[in-house]
Amino acid sequence: MADTEATPKGTVPDNANEHCPGPESEAAGKAEGCEGCPNQEICASQAAGPDPDLPLVAERLRHVRHRLLVLSGKGGVGKSTFTGQLAFALADDEETEVGVVDIDICGPSLPQIMGCTGEEMHRSSNGWSPVYVRDNLSLVSIGFMLPSDDAAVIWRGPKKNGMIKQFLKDVDWGGSADGGRMDYLLVDTPPGTSDEHLSIVQMLKGSITGAVIITTPQEVALQDVRKEIDFCRKAGVPILGLVENMSGFVCPSCHGESRIFYPTTGGAQALCDELGLLLLGSIPLDPRIGKACDFGSSFLDTCADSPAAQAYAGIISRIKKIVEQ
C-alpha cells in the first residue's frame, strides 16, 4: 500500500528547496513547496503586503552609494574578519565614507575586530549615532548594547528582525558628522539563509549593490555555500563573487605554504566554474590575522608584507572596480 503519511510539521520536505518560489515572490510562504519550511511564516507575512517601514529605510539610506552584503552559508569561515578588514581598507582613503552594520545578532564580533569594544551608541535628534572607529568609518552592532561581553542574546526571529530594521531606519547613516554622502555600507551577516537574511534583503529591497560570499576550500563548507548562492539567486541579490579564505597556511618566517583545508572537490575555483561565478581571490592563513582581530587593528596596515595582506588587497581592489563600474 502506498505511503500517504503527511510530512510532519516542522520538518522540511525533500523537494522543498527545489520548488521554493523565493522570498520575493507573491507566492512566498503559500506555495506547495513552502509546506513545512521553517521560514514559511516569515515569508508569508512579507508576501502579505509591503512593509510600511520600507520608505523610512529608503529615506534614511538615500545618501548611501553602495550596499554590500558579506555572506556564507557556513559559520567559522571568516565573514566578520573579512568584513572588518574590507572596512579598514576602504576607509584608508580619507575621502571615502564607510559604514558597517553587524546583523549577527547572536554572535556580534565586529566591535572586537574593529577595536571599539566598550563603546556605546547614543541617541541624537537625528536618531542613533553609530560608533566611529575612524572619522570616516562607523559601526552599529548589538554588541554595543549588551550589559557585558558574555551576555547571550536569546531572541526569537521577530525580535531579531526588529533590531535589524532599527539599525537601518533609526541610525543616522548620512555619512560623517557633516551629514554628507556615505560611499559604502557593509552588512556582516550570520551563517545560513534564515530570518536575518530575509529581513535584510526585504529592508534593502532592490538597492543591494551585491554580495561577497566567503568560503573555505573543503567540501563541507562548499556545500553550505551552494545554499547561500541559491538563496541569493532566488532573492534577487547580485553576487559580486566568492572569496576563498584559509586557502593554505603561510609561514610568517619562510613564507612556505601548506594546505590546511584540502580542496577535495576543487575548492572555490571549481565551484565558481560550475556555477558561473567570479572567484575574487584566495586568502592564505596567517596567524597575524587573528592577532590583528584580537587587537582591533587593520591587518593590511600592520602586516603589509604578508602574502595574506597582498591577497586581501587584490580582492578589495577587484570589489571596488566591480562596484564602481
Rank of each mutant, 00 (worst) to 15 (best):
D3Y: 13
T4G: 01
A6V: 10
V12N: 03
V12C: 12
P13D: 09
N15H: 14
A16L: 11
G22S: 01
E24Q: 15
E24T: 15
E26H: 14
A27Q: 10
E32L: 04
G36S: 14
C37R: 00
P38W: 07
Q46N: 10
Q46A: 02
D51R: 03
P52H: 06
L54R: 04
A58T: 09
R60D: 02
H63S: 15
H63N: 14
V64F: 02
R65W: 06
H66S: 10
L68N: 02
L69Y: 07
G73N: 02
G76V: 12
V77S: 04
V77T: 00
K79H: 11
S80L: 08
T81W: 05
T83V: 04
A89H: 05
A91F: 04
V98C: 01
V101L: 15
I103M: 08
C106A: 05
C106W: 09
G107Q: 11
P108C: 07
L110T: 09
L110D: 04
G115E: 04
E119A: 15
M121L: 01
R123Q: 15
R123C: 09
N126T: 11
N126M: 13
S129G: 05
Y132K: 14
V133F: 09
V133T: 12
L137F: 04
S138E: 09
L139I: 00
G143E: 03
M145D: 03
L146C: 05
A151K: 03
A151S: 15
V153R: 11
I154K: 15
R156C: 06
P158T: 12
K160C: 01
N161G: 15
I164H: 02
K165N: 10
D170G: 12
V171R: 00
V171Q: 09
G175D: 13
A177T: 11
G179Y: 06
P191K: 04
S194M: 03
S199P: 02
M203K: 08
V212A: 02
E219D: 13
E219M: 08
V220T: 05
A221D: 08
A221E: 03
D224K: 08
V225F: 14
E228A: 14
I229P: 02
F231I: 03
F231A: 00
C232S: 02
R233E: 14
P238K: 06
L240K: 05
E244G: 03
S247L: 03
G248L: 12
F249T: 02
F249Q: 06
V250H: 00
E257H: 05
R259S: 15
P263D: 05
T265L: 14
A268L: 12
L275C: 11
L280K: 00
I283Y: 04
L285V: 12
D286P: 09
P287G: 12
A292N: 03
A292R: 07
A292F: 04
S298P: 01
D301Q: 15
T302S: 06
C303F: 09
C303Y: 05
A311T: 05
A313V: 06
S317T: 13
K320Y: 06
K321M: 07
